[in-house]
Design a binder for these strands. Structure first.
Length: 388
DNA sequence: TATGCGTGGTT
DNA sequence: TAACCAAGCAT
């Protein structure tokens, strides 16, 4: 469509490429995945970097490569172990898709990645951006890679408030340097994350400032235009912290969430949504808590048999957690199994729920909020607070 | 095209 | 405190 929106002729394109590559050669930051040409490692880094900051990714990337150095080692690992190495990074479907893709590659292509962007895009978890990034960085293909940085830089260069994905892709395709496509794409992103930042961009240090329409117009702070967001709903959840044993050596009852959706495949204490929080009236709240806990016990197939003192469960420290699209106020309640009674996970549910030693909980992947709940429990038990 | 999907840092 | 946002993908 609007070819006219792209003001660059051949000479300017060559100059833009040279300026960006010179900037990259001079100012690029050190990153562990820039020390390798292994397509697998570059792929993993790109997936980890989706919606995630470089500094956050680095330690995860190092641990990942120590444990899963090849497609094969990843393909042969269990879902739990894969998710454990992703624990805390968020967007857990990335880990599940990476695992699934590794198994496909190992099964059909002897563990080798395809080299074209179109083929890469067929793999789960690889979209337009990641396909272009891996194809250009690992395989030297002249493919565009439009991430949030590139989108912002292009919107400013052309002073376009809301460029479409198609426009961005066309502009980036025209710009990418066929001689050094991987370096060019990384240079574009590096510029966005170091110089052409969202607020207060450092235009005086910009290597391509002479081509920037927004800078000339003084509109760089307004490009691109912000997206509208829906407010996050606030949810209250009652959490059943079922404990077997008296001290830090106790076990807790955990179950695995369904493979899809929020925190898919992660483990947690059983919980259910409440209608209202504790502010809505103490007696009402207490009754609701008892009903929720009893319902959870029924769900996991135990009833109240063997469970102590459900009439007055012990409230633990509440935990607030913000997810990408909701805010949850967790109210954990500690329920102890009466000594001498044996409470078993329901038959046929093996692998779906289990007792886990509190001190060994790193063996299962836990969401951040669940880890906070269990850490609080551990501290209380260590302090002897449960012996009152 | 719009929405769901984590977490942590910055302002 | 709350809003914003970061090397996006799937549906």
């Amino acid at each position: 469509m609007s070819e006219a929106a792209q003001p660059w002729d051949g000479a300017r394109i060559r100059d833009l490429r040279a300026s960006l590559l010179a900037f990259f050669d001079e100012h690029q930051r050190e990153m562990p995945w820039r020390e390798t040409s292994d397509p697998y490692r570059i792929w993993v880094s790109e997936v980890m970097l989706q919606q995630t900051r470089v500094e956050t990714v680095v330690p995860y990337y190092r641990r990942w490569m120590e444990r899963f150095p090849t497609v094969r080692t990843l393909a042969e690992a269990s879902t739990d172990e894969v998710l454990r190495h992703w624990q805390g990074l968020g967007y857990y479907s990335r880990a599940r898709n990476l695992h699934k893709a590794a198994r496909e590659l190992q099964a059909h292509y002897d563990g080798a990645l395809p080299t074209s962007a179109a083929e890469l895009k067929q793999l789960p978890g690889i979209g337009d951006y990641t396909a272009g990034a891996v194809a250009s960085i690992a395989f030297g293909k002249a493919e565009p890679a439009v991430d949030g940085n590139v989108r912002r830089v292009l919107a400013r260069l052309l002073d376009e408030p809301s460029p479409t994905a198609g426009e961005l892709r066309r502009w980036a395709s025209a710009l990418v340097d066929p001689e050094r496509p991987g370096d060019f794409n990384q240079a574009f992103m590096e510029l966005g994350s170091v110089v052409c930042v969202p607020r207060s961009p450092r235009c005086r240090s910009c290597p391509v400032g002479e081509y920037c329409r927004a800078r000339r117009a003084g509109t760089q702070e307004e490009r691109p235009a912000p997206k509208t967001r829906k407010p996050n709903p606030r949810i209250v959840e009652v959490v059943l912290v079922l404990r077997r044993g008296e001290d830090r050596n106790c076990e807790v009852f955990l179950r695995r969430r369904p493979a899809d959706g929020l925190l898919g495949g992660m483990w947690e204490c059983p919980s259910r949504e409440a209608n209202e929080g504790p502010d809505s009236g103490s007696e009402l709240w207490k009754a609701q808590v008892r009903r929720a806990l009893q319902g959870l016990l029924n769900e996991i197939g135990t009833g109240s048999d063997g469970v102590d003192d459900l009439g007055d469960p012990r409230a633990l420290t509440s935990v607030d957690h913000t997810f990408s699209h909701r805010r949850v106020h967790y109210h954990p309640f500690e329920v102890a199994v009466r000594p001498g009674r044996i409470l078993r996970p329901p038959e046929g549910s093996e692998g779906y729920c289990r007792w886990v030693p509190l001190r060994d909980r790193t063996r299962v992947p836990l969401p951040v909020a669940q880890e906070a709940i269990l850490r609080d429990l551990e501290l209380r038990l260590a302090a002897g607070a449960s012996l009152s």
